[in-house]
Design a protein around this nucleic acid. Structure first.
Lengths: 165, 165
DNA sequence: CTGTATCCTTCGCATTTCGAAATTAATTTA
DNA sequence: TAAATTAATTTCGAAATGCGAAGGATACAG
């Protein structure tokens, strides 16, 4: 009865693992090409996308601690790929952005995976594109859906770590 | 003309970023709950999935160096979550597997993201499930396709793989 | 038996990562 | 206004990751 369903969901999970693994490896490739480490690359990509950001937002965006982001920024700044500027109205804040050579580097080694993806994507029929987008929306929703009938499933009582949020 | 296409592909990219980010954060959550670091968790998950593996295969599977895997295994072994055994016929090899408590820990902290995903997935209509699977296949294919030219992408049906429990 | 290939570990070094404490600036409160 | 609180970053210390190169040990071919 559930046979078919199970197979489908297993298939979907496997595909998602594949996709994540694939993007992970592509990221490593780009990282190798640019001479940046992976976290550095992620920061650079985020900066390219968002423009000027504060370390705090940056940390939130890429799900790392501020302390961690600070140390990554230190190294990127030393390489002169990013600059920090103190905020003018609010001097507690710091604005980070790409330098010329930062932009150049990111231009030279663009998001390969994204380019490949986009090219292939644009070769698809419109209806197929819509289908993929709709599906990704479903997947994204399903992953973020904490809701759904009160799913407890976290009965990990005997773990030494307290939980905070 | 291209307006619509561009929007679609951008949308798709954004959704994929979201999905990856989401899974990343869920992994961090599990990591926090189990008291394992992220790479340690990945190794444990892989072991659970594959059973007995050599460090070499493990490294290839999770796209890390053997040296790195060795050091991660060192720590997991010290915590008595995994064991190493020298191969009997080929003594160069080493077989790694979960210990009792390793299995227990992984049972207690299941793949949350996957559980949530599966539950939601199974609530969908069969045709929707098929759509999502097909779309994920497309995406996976597009990401792995290095050569975009001759890419008719006809049959993506065979997702061969051994099946464990 | 000798060389070569394979599998894993060791070593050195840079980087990541985090929590806790420190710093500086803005905001609220008394 | 002065003092306390809140907010944004950085600094610091310590553990873990990650890699390349070098070092065993074992298998295998000739």
């Amino acid at each position: 009865m559930l046979r078919n369903t199970m197979e489908n969901s297993q298939k979907a999970l496997m595909l998602m693992r594949q996709i994540i693994r694939s993007t992970d490896m592509q990221d490593k490739e780009i990282s190798r090409l640019t001479g940046l480490t992976l976290p550095q690359l992620v920061v650079m990509q985020t900066l390219r996308e968002l423009g000027q950001v504060t370390p705090g937002e940056l940390a939130k965006e890429i799900a790392l601690t501020q302390a961690t982001v600070t140390s990554i920024l230190d190294r990127l700044e030393k390489k002169e790929l990013v600059v920090r500027e103190r905020g003018k109205e609010d001097k507690r804040r710091v604005w980070v952005s790409l330098t010329e050579s930062g932009v150049e580097l990111m231009k030279g080694a663009p998001a390969t995976r994204q380019e490949i993806f986009v090219r292939n994507f644009e070769d698809m029929q419109p209806w197929e594109q819509s289908m993929v987008v709709a599906s990704l929306e479903r997947v994204s929703y399903m992953l973020n859906a904490q809701h759904l009938d009160a799913a407890p499933l976290l009965d990990i009582g005997q773990l030494d770590r307290p939980q905070e949020s």
